[in-house]
């Protein structure tokens, strides 16, 4: 083997430098618009306005408003990721294994492609028109059933309302990721487990779920990061009345509140840490649970 490789190298001298030159634009772009900006922020988090090293910015994060913003963001992201994962999985299962008519699956997949991209400001408008104070569903519930959901404590511009709105792109995203994963379950595994005496529940608990676990976990964390970094929907829905971390950072960058760039860098560092940690955790858990895979 080594011999043939050496032979190849001798008989086919390559202009290596030219090849490397081809990836230079990409690398340069990645440095200028991904790596250096992010690094500068992280460095900035440890500097005072004069550029000296300090931990004061990190310490300054310890304010009730900021702590609560992180908490709310994490809670909304976790709730919408969990709900999206659960319902998305249910729908993916239904189209992949549910014995429903064949046309439902491509319809559902196409719709999911659209809905998972239908986010941002227009999504906020749609939910305002649906579940806002004058929204259609709100009005219908009041006029037909006499139930004013706002009187029962529902508020679209709140934790619950925002989570419900985020589900509109979280569920389809989950469907798109999980349907191929569920397709990967072989019919023979179910049959083999069944003939060995296992119930459907035992099959799911001992075989299907452990096999799907890495995909489930990965999708959950992707959904989490997806919601955690989201701002447009929340901002359009609530203005700056909802205290989540992206809106806080947005206001900080605009110079509306805090007006301390270095504190802003610390806020951003916190966000990178949270999404980075969840991705790191995913990679670690996946490598542990996939010992049985090549």
């Amino acid at each position: 083997m080594a011999e043939t490789a050496a032979e190849l190298a001798r008989t086919r001298p390559r202009p290596v430098s030219l090849t490397w030159l081809g990836v230079v634009p990409f690398m340069l772009f990645a440095l200028m618009f991904l790596i250096v900006p992010a690094t500068l922020l992280m460095i900035g988090a440890f500097q005072d306005p004069q550029g000296n090293f300090t931990l004061q910015n990190i310490a300054n994060l310890n304010q009730p408003t900021i702590i609560r913003a992180y908490q709310t963001s994490i809670a909304i992201s976790a709730a919408s990721a969990f709900g999206g994962a659960l319902l998305g999985f249910g729908l993916a299962y239904a189209v992949a294994l549910g014995h429903v008519p064949r046309w439902i699956r491509p319809t559902m997949m196409t719709f999911s492609g659209v809905a998972s991209n239908f986010a941002g400001v227009p999504l906020a408008f749609a939910f305002m028109a649906t579940l806002g104070r004058t929204g259609l569903v709100t009005a219908l519930l009041t006029s037909i059933f006499g139930i004013n959901i706002y009187r029962y404590g529902f508020n679209l511009l709140s934790f619950g309302g925002l989570t419900l709105t985020y589900l509109y792109f979280q569920i389809p995203l989950m469907i798109l990721i999980m349907t191929p994963a569920i397709d990967g379950l072989k019919r023979e595994w179910r049959e083999a487990s069944s003939i060995l005496g296992a119930s459907t529940w035992q099959y799911w608990r001992m075989i299907a779920f452990p096999i799907l676990w890495p995909s489930l976990l990965g999708s959950f964390l992707l959904l989490f990061a997806n919601a955690f970094g989201a701002i447009a929907t929340a901002y359009a829905l609530t203005g700056s009345s909802l205290n989540i971390i992206t809106i806080l950072l947005f206001a900080q960058i605009r110079g509306d509140v805090l007006h301390d760039p270095n504190l802003g860098y610390a806020l951003a560092l916190g966000m990178i840490l949270i999404t980075g940690l969840s991705n790191g955790a995913y990679i670690w858990l996946r490598s542990r649970s996939e010992r049985w895979m090549r």
Partner: peptide
């Protein structure tokens, strides 16, 4: 997918 858009643009504004 890991670095939120708002963080990226914040980095651009600094850089």
């Amino acid at each position: 997918l890991v670095i939120p858009a708002i963080v990226l643009v914040f980095g651009y504004l600094r850089m």
